[in-house]
Amino acid sequence: MVPFSHSLLVAALLFGMGLFCLLTRRNLIMMLLGIEVMLNAGALAFVAASLHWQQMDGQAMVLFILTVAATEVSVGLALIVALYRRTGSVDPDPPADRQLAAQAGEGGV
């Protein structure tokens, strides 16, 4: 089987991608998606550690991560829907800041 550090590396890359998504997307739903990826990366690291030390506590922790992820998604999405009902947008920043950011980032993609 592969070394422990290789699976950790995969987890770290996944985490980085999630973080990237969280920080760069101007859309709350995509940010939430990024958080999911990060949580998933954490779960992968736990499973790998569980195998490495031959202890099931790591897997138990993954179960709790799953619970937290489900909770976080449902509450987060509900918040997003509430926000959308109120402002009609899913932008993380209020309109005033949005203009500011638009001025600052001329090179926005």
Binding site: L22, L23, T24, R26, M31, P92, D93, P94, A96, D97
Partner: peptide, 10 residues
């Protein structure tokens, strides 16, 4: 914690 959430996260 008002606004600019991504800056803060960063």
């Amino acid at each position: 914690n008002r606004s600019q959430i991504q800056f803060r996260l960063m």
